[in-house]
Amino acid sequence: MSRGVPAVEDEEEVPGSEQSVSAPVTQEEPERELTHEEFDPKGTLALILTYFAVLAIMWVFMYFVEFLGNDLIVVG
């Protein structure tokens, strides 16, 4: 494990959990390993569905209120 500084004693290593070189040295280590099968990105799904809703609402507002509600629609 490379930290370049005296490290807190490691317990069980999580593979790929080497400390980022730009992180504070006191940063805590990952505490468990999650495989592809064990990991369901439900937080990601929740965030991205929120994003979808924001996009849809903003699009409707921009197109139908800001754009089509504007003066001098180009018709030819």
Binding site: P30, E31, F39, T44, I48
Partner: peptide, 12 residues
């Protein structure tokens, strides 16, 4: 975002 979430969950 899912990769970040994976990191966050590994960090507890």
């Amino acid at each position: 975002v899912a990769s970040m979430e994976h990191g966050a969950r590994q960090r507890g």
